[in-house]
């Protein structure tokens, strides 16, 4: 189990993370979503024990990660950029990992390499960005980690390998009960594999629960009113975006429930229809800097 409790991170005068609380159950796949600069990478690096946790706590199996070899031995961390020694050959990097991680299996690496197809005699500097990502994934999967932290793992991968990777991740959870924390800009991919997601916005948790719950709260409503409500509709609480096509209003709300329905009816709503939203749409709408006084027509 991973617990992020009241974590904040400040660089100079810039607060990258602000009072983050996340709980990730063992064997869950947890997605971290956010715009560039939302603090995803910083959060993942803190989970991996790269950055110190000065405010708050990050606990894995009840122990803090920073400078804790016992816990770090259980973690596989795939960074978003190349990080290995550039003058090493892939085979040397395998030996390096084998000497560092107790659970590293060269046999597993060979198996993964049947899918990822990397020439182990090549030097790291000769590998493309995608190839380096493949290497990082293979090395960290071969550690047989209990917690896998993946920062943009699909960037640079082609569609076939991407699909294979997502399948491997699901297998890892199924076979070994691995806990996976993954960030990606491809929200569609996360939606397919994640049990839960956390949406970060400017260093704060905007939403954090399982995808169905988020979808339950954030809704797109198609509403038809008896008369024009242009001046009154933006006074209703819980509406984060308003679009008007002809006489039909499309409302995005992050607080869907009876109260909102009643408010809309009191405003003269004749028809209220619930339209499904994808996770990507939820992310876009909840992260848009919306001026609620304006209606898109």
């Amino acid at each position: 189990m991973i617990e992020v409790i009241g974590v904040s991170k400040v660089f100079g005068d810039f607060r990258v993370l602000d009072n983050i609380d996340i709980k990730i159950k063992k064997g869950a796949i947890h997605g971290i979503i956010g715009e560039n600069g939302a603090g995803k990478t910083t959060l993942l690096q803190m989970m991996a024990g790269v950055y110190d946790v000065e405010e708050g706590k990050i606990l894995i199996d009840g122990e803090s990660v920073y400078e804790n070899n016992k816990i770090k031995n259980k973690i596989g961390y795939v960074a978003d950029r190349n990080q290995y020694f550039k003058d090493y050959k892939v085979s040397e990097m395998i030996d390096f990992y084998a000497g560092i991680y107790d659970g590293f299996s060269k046999e597993d690496f060979k198996e993964y390499n049947k899918i990822f197809k990397l020439d182990i005699n090549k030097k790291i500097r000769q590998l493309s960005k995608g190839m380096q990502m493949r290497l990082s994934l293979m090395l960290n999967l071969s550690n047989r980690p209990e917690v896998l932290i993946l920062d943009e793992p699909t960037s640079g991968l082609d569609a076939i390998v991407k699909k294979e990777l997502l399948d491997i991740l699901i297998d890892q959870v199924y076979d070994r009960d691995v806990t996976i924390v993954i960030s990606s800009h491809h929200i569609g991919e996360l939606e397919k594999i994640c049990d839960e997601v956390t949406i970060l916005n400017r260093g704060r948790v905007k939403f954090g629960s399982n995808i169905d719950e988020i979808k339950e709260n954030v809704k797109k409503l198609q509403v038809i009113f008896k008369e024009d409500v242009k001046d009154r509709i933006n006074k209703i609480d819980g509406i984060i975006n308003i679009e008007k096509v002809g006489s039909v209003y499309y409302l995005i709300t992050d607080n869907y429930g009876e109260e909102l329905t009643t408010d809309l009816k009191n405003l003269g709503a004749e028809l209220i229809e619930n339209i499904g939203l994808t996770l990507e749409e939820i992310f876009i709408y909840t992260n848009k800097n919306i001026d609620r006084g304006e209606i898109d027509e």
């Binding site: 690096q45 991996a48 790269v50 400078e67 770090k72 973690i75 960074a79 950029r81 990080q83 290995y84």
Partner: peptide
């Protein structure tokens, strides 16, 4: 020279080896 590069420094820090 190698560990002073940002990426390598972070990589080394993520390993289960104390400073």
């Amino acid at each position: 020279r190698s560990e002073k590069s940002q990426e390598t420094g972070r990589f080394l820090k993520s390993l289960p080896v104390k400073k």
